[in-house]
Structure formats: structure tokens, C-alpha cells
Simulated scan of single mutants.
Amino acid sequence: MKLTLIYCYIFLLIIAASACKKDSAGDNASLRIISYTEDITAIGGRTVETYSVEYDAQNRITSVASTNKHGARTVYQYSAENSFTCDKYTDAVLLYHSVYFINNQSLIDSTWGREYKEAPYKSDTISGKFYYNEDKKLIKQKEFLNSTLVPPVLNRTINYQYDINGTLVKETADDYESSYAYEKENKNTVQLQPFYFPSNDQLPSHSYITRFGTTLETKHTYTFDDHKRVIGERAEQSDGRITILSYTYEK
């Protein structure tokens, strides 16, 4: 459950770019990704999965659906009251439902979510609060466990550190620490979640995550098209796991 929430909260801090729009390398090339493929090779074998991406009239992502597994998808629904929902399904079964509330800077202010488990287990609920600096950079995130019997209990605090240029270099919590180094020449063009999430337009060249005294290093390399859009990424981990991502943009 913790990993699920982390992926929902900060996935874009590693791979996301600025909001979906037509503005790349000074031309009119679209940054809307219409599909992508994830190819993972690990000790247990190899899996390949392709996803289709859909948008609404305001260029907001509404669905990321697997084309290999029927019913496996993430659905976003937006309201007029500065909030949106995220529902994750596998085999058409709802696994996770969350609500995100937007502040007056069009950034995530707080969230509430429920993870659904198979009977006889009950579903868990979790909430979170986001804190920003004057540059709209996420500096702290608090995660709470909720219960109908007692007030919310603080479960985790994640702190984010930036360099002088405002680029994320480290995030820390009680049970892990992540740090990043970036390539200098190219910018990220990948947007796979709603642009209300905090984002980083730099491409990591190396990332490191330390848990329980063990550090896992990941080396990232990229390929680009003629419009300087990211069309491929290879992430090679020190434990032997290799993830290859490829992206198709709207023409």
C-alpha cells in the first residue's frame, strides 16, 4: 500500500515534465503521448505491456489503459470544485480510489485514498498533505493512516531537497532515501499523470534509493526524435533489472 501511494504521489518527480502542451524545441510538435510500452526484464523473467493514453478537451489525461490486460487501467475524473479522482483497476476490479484536492496555485494540496483488498480483509484508508515553497516546489509531504475510531495518525513524512537551480536532488523518509543526478543537454517531455502534480523537467542520468542499509543504483539513458522529444528510456538497475520504455506522441 505504501509503495502504491508513493507512486501516485511522486512518480512525476522522476519522469514527468511540464503540462501537456505544444511547445517542444521551438516547433509545434505535440507533447501528448498517445501510447507507451514498458518492457521489464528481471530475475523472474520478462514482461512487456503497452498502454493507451486518452485526454479531455482541456488536454488533461483521463485514462491510461493496458492494451494487453483487459480491464487494467487508471481513470482520472475532474470536477469543477478544484479536485479530481484517480481509480486504479485490474481485470475491471477496483483496487484503489483516491481524491486529490487542488490549491489556488493549481498544485495538489491534499489527498484521501482507499485501497480495496480481498475478503475477509477490510479496505485501508490513507490521506496526505503537501507543502510548497515560494517557488512552487514541493518541500514536504505528510502521509496519515485513517481510522473511524481514532484521529488520523501520522505514518510518514517525506522531505524534498533542491539544488540552486530548483532541481530535485534528494528525497528522504524514515524508511528510504532517494537521490538523483541529471543529464545536462535535454529536457523531459513525458507527461503520464495529471499536470497538477509537482513536476521536474530534468532527465535523471542516475538515481539511487537506499532502504535498510542497501543502496540500489539505476542508470538512465534516453533516445530522442527530431523534435527533441523523449521516445525511449532504458533504466538499468544494479540488481540486474532492466526497464525499457518507449513513447508514441500525437502527430
Rank of each mutant, 00 (worst) to 15 (best):
G45K: 07
A80R: 14
I43R: 09
C86W: 01
R60N: 15
S83K: 15
T90E: 12
A92Y: 13
R73S: 14
T50K: 14
Y55I: 06
N82E: 13
D87H: 10
E38P: 01
R60A: 04
K88D: 08
T74K: 09
Q58R: 14
E38A: 11
T41I: 11
S66I: 05
K88H: 11
L94R: 08
G71V: 03
N82G: 02
T41H: 03
S83N: 13
G44C: 00
L95M: 13
I43Y: 11
Y78G: 10
K88Q: 05
E54G: 00
G44L: 09
T67P: 00
T50H: 05
D39S: 13
T85W: 09
V64K: 06
T62Y: 07
T62K: 09
S66W: 04
A65T: 12
R46Y: 00
Y51R: 04
C86G: 00
Y51K: 10
N59R: 12
I40C: 02
T47L: 05
H70T: 14
F84G: 06
A72V: 09
E81V: 12
Q77F: 00
R60Q: 15
E81K: 14
K69V: 14
A42V: 01
E81M: 11
Y55V: 06
G45H: 07
N59V: 04
H70N: 15
